[in-house]
């Protein structure tokens, strides 16, 4: 029963935090909203008995991604405290599309028979260990795993390159006045 309450509370909090994250014009606060959502997600993972993923969620999302966003905001100093409008002019279209999406999804979930089903079996207590083995097993998931690693590495190098790129000073060599003499 506690689980129900926790679920309800956390879900509500997550939706509210998500709304903060997408509406607040202060990007730091929006990021805080995002962090809250991410944290709520981790809680839900625990409820779903996916402990490894819950830990990964906290470490990767909150520990890395959210921090990265905060850093990015701080690096571009006055973006963080910009006081312009939060949305662009065509935001109404976004509402329409998002609304349509919401209606569609809700409809779909409501009409899906499996939506109110229960879990068929409990989770193996050794599950995390098995998962680890499956990830590196040749007949298991080693290829997706490696592809993901390669993707990460590529993204890392690309990110460094892109962020580093503009540092060179462009334009002609500035001449000193003494060299202009004959």
């Amino acid at each position: 029963m506690v689980a129900y309450w926790i679920f309800a509370l956390v879900s509500l909090l997550m939706v509210l935090a998500a709304l903060v994250a997408v509406t607040n014009r202060n990007l730091v606060r929006a990021t805080m909203g995002l962090v809250l959502v991410l944290f709520g997600n981790a809680v839900l993972f625990v409820l779903l008995e996916a402990y490894f993923l819950a830990v990964a969620q906290v470490i990767i999302y909150i520990g890395a991604i959210a921090i990265l966003i905060v850093f990015a905001i701080m690096l571009t100093r006055h973006v963080g405290d910009a006081w312009g409008p939060a949305f662009h002019r065509a935001w109404a279209w976004a509402v329409v599309v998002a609304g349509g999406l919401a209606v569609g999804l809700l409809f779909w979930i409501a009409h899906w028979p499996a939506a109110d089903g229960k879990a068929k079996s409990p989770v193996d207590p050794q599950y995390t260990k098995l998962l680890g083995k499956a990830l590196v097993a040749p007949d298991g998931y080693v290829i997706p795993f490696e592809v993901a690693s390669a993707l990460l590495l590529a993204a890392l190098i690309g990110a460094i390159y892109v962020a580093w790129g503009g540092r060179r000073v462009k334009g002609p060599y500035p001449q000193r006045s003494e060299e202009k003499e004959a």
Binding site: H88, A90, W93, A94, V97, A98, G100, L101, G104, L105, F107, W108, H111
Partner: peptide, 20 residues
């Protein structure tokens, strides 16, 4: 970018409706 995203999602919506 957002236009593209908008269009893409609008199509998802349309697709969902078609499926429905």
């Amino acid at each position: 970018v957002q236009h593209y995203m908008l269009v893409a999602l609008a199509h998802v919506v349309a697709f969902l409706m078609l499926v429905y």
